[in-house]
Write a protein that binds this DNA or RNA. Structure first.
Length: 300
DNA sequence: GGCCGTCAAGACGAT
DNA sequence: ATCGTCTTGACGGCC
């Protein structure tokens, strides 16, 4: 089992700006920024390895404006060596990486342009992972998208677009995550049966939106959506409620009791299904919680 | 040097 | 109609 955290390491400060405004876009600034971002990513991965953290989500901004029309730079060629160096490091150390494009990726949008732009954005994510020569277990996770007042129809549009509009290399990396107000685990299972797309099970979103399943039922159904040999370990996103804040807001730090209760349930599932899982902690204090969780799990 | 409005992009619920 | 939220963080203009 790997435990990871998303996008940012709060211990290691990136000494350079990691992105810039579209207004200040230039080839020079772009190349400098990407170079620094890639170097920084490698330091973060090194930090993680030193601390036994073998799961990390790479931030989508690592190549700024990569899918924007303004970007006509062949960055995968310019930075070929660096990208392959990072990929080699990841593979050599049995690290798992993933990505999570932001909310603007709507595969089932009513607007053809938004679907088109969404696919461009996904292609960028795919190209980055491909350029690092990573296996298809390096996943890109997205949500179900819009509902538009008719979820059954929206799910069909998602499935049709997934099946018809995406190239195979992209399909092999895509996974769908249940969200906290539109697409429940059951909705994702429905989409899975039409597309075969594996499901990232977000336990916190599931607490916010579910269909009354037991935790064990949820776990065994989401696990079945993964083909371990090509998809890698099923991924589970974990967080807990930020007490006093609106429902669905992520905790600032690891809720130890909540986590250990969840982990205890997981252990049974892992044993029964003879499968390993990778856990992504979506907690605001990032690697601090990951390190704490790791310690707790090791002492279990 | 620090403050804080704003940032490429969409959808949705709350106000 | 406008705002806050989503993995929100951080850029960059202004004082």
């Amino acid at each position: 089992m790997r435990i990871g955290y998303p996008c940012i390491n709060l211990t290691l400060k990136n000494q350079y700006s990691s992105t810039f405004r579209l207004k200040s876009y230039s080839e020079k600034l772009f190349n400098e920024t990407v170079k620094n971002n890639l170097n920084h990513l490698l330091s973060v991965l090194n930090f993680n390895k030193t601390n036994n953290i073998y799961f990390f989500r790479i931030g989508s901004d690592i190549i700024p404006f990569a899918s924007h029309p303004v970007c006509d730079i062949d960055w995968s060629d310019t930075f070929k060596e660096k990208l392959e160096e990072i990929g080699d490091f990841i593979i050599k150390n049995n690290i798992r990486v993933s990505m999570h494009p932001d909310q603007f990726v709507i595969l089932n949008s009513k607007s053809e342009d938004i679907v088109k732009n969404s696919i461009r954005e996904l292609q960028y994510h795919c190209k980055l992972l491909d350029s690092m020569r990573l296996p298809t277990s390096a996943k890109i996770q997205i949500h179900g998208g819009g509902v538009y007042g008719d979820k059954e129809k929206a799910k069909k549009v998602f499935s049709n677009n997934f099946n018809k509009l995406l190239e195979e290399s992209l399909k092999r990396r895509l996974v769908i995550e249940n969200d906290d107000r539109s697409y429940s685990l059951q909705d994702c299972l429905d989409i899975n049966s039409e597309t075969g797309i594996p499901i990232v099970f977000d336990t916190f979103h599931h607490e916010c939106l579910n269909n009354g399943e037991t935790f064990q039922q949820s776990l065994s159904s989401f696990i079945k959506s993964w083909k371990y040999t090509t998809d890698g370990n099923p991924i589970l996103d974990y967080s807990s409620q930020n007490i006093g804040e609106r429902k669905g807001k992520h905790a600032k730090s690891l809720n130890k009791n909540h986590f250990i209760y969840m982990y205890d349930e997981l252990k049974n599932t892992i044993k029964e299904n003879q499968v390993d899982l990778d856990i992504m902690l979506e907690i605001k204090d990032k690697e601090k919680s990951a390190l704490l969780a790791l310690k707790m799990v090791q002492g279990f």
